[in-house]
């Protein structure tokens, strides 16, 4: 790989499995263009039917309640509700960004050695400690919705560990073969989805819990 420059490799046609079809790049371009156009049609129809939200003229004297951030930040806002701003607003996002950047550099994925091949009990123990500590921390802050992914993921990891090394089923073996980064990323995505959904839909004036189908 080191002596194989990327440009050289780019010109190569990858090895082909028997029976596979190869298609010109032009066709890929067409297919992607068609996908873009279909998306564009969908968006155009959306734009024709649904009006973009617009509220009253900004008024610094009258606080909107709840003052909600754009939907993609409501997860952060939900965290802000539980943790001090410095933790939820600064440390966590910075950690997330850093984690995203270093993911490929820390990924030591050698398929033959899964997470559970060595030191299984030791690793399970650290997993349990981390999961319990995180749950206690989150519950202490009152962030019960953020504990859902922690519990789900740690339970799945424990299951995966129990499946490791013995033939159980395709899915089970696939899951037990997953590296740590997979679990962390899945946990992060789950947290993001749950917190964002809660923040965007289930929070009303004073950031209290409301059911979205119940109009205030």
């Amino acid at each position: 790989m080191m002596n194989n420059s990327p440009s050289e490799r780019g010109k190569q046609l990858p090895a082909r499995a028997p029976g596979e079809k190869s298609i010109s790049y032009r066709e890929l371009l067409f297919r992607e263009m068609i996908a873009i156009e279909i998306l564009a049609v969908v968006l155009v129809c959306l734009a024709l039917v649904w009006n973009a939200p617009l509220e009253q003229l900004a008024d610094p004297l009258h606080t909107a309640n709840p003052a909600k951030a754009p939907w993609y930040f409501t997860g952060l806002q939900e965290l802000l509700h539980y943790f001090p701003p410095f933790v939820a607003g600064v440390i966590l996002p910075t950690l997330i960004v850093l984690a995203l950047i270093v993911v490929p550099f820390f990924n030591v994925n050698i398929k033959d050695q899964t997470l559970w091949d060595r030191n299984k009990s030791q690793r399970l123990m650290s997993l349990a400690i981390i999961a319990v500590a995180l749950t206690v921390l989150l519950l202490h802050a009152g962030a019960w919705d953020a504990t859902i992914p922690v519990l789900t993921i740690s339970a799945l990891m424990a299951l995966a560990a129990s499946w490791a090394g013995r033939p159980v089923g395709r899915f089970q073996n696939w899951l037990s073969g997953k590296p740590l980064s997979f679990w962390i990323m899945t946990w992060f995505l789950m947290e993001a989805v749950i917190l964002t959904t809660v923040g965007a839909l289930f929070r009303g004036p004073g950031w209290v819990w409301v059911w979205p189908w119940r109009n205030s």
């Binding site: 067409f30 297919r31 263009m33 049609v41 155009v44 129809c45 024709l48």
Partner: peptide, 23 residues
């Protein structure tokens, strides 16, 4: 053919775009 498919998709997009001025 991909070209036809692309053509039809483009036509559909153009029609969708024409709805706004009509509206």
């Amino acid at each position: 053919s991909p070209v036809r498919r692309f053509g039809w998709a483009s036509l559909l997009l153009l029609i969708a775009l024409a709805v706004a001025p009509t509206k």
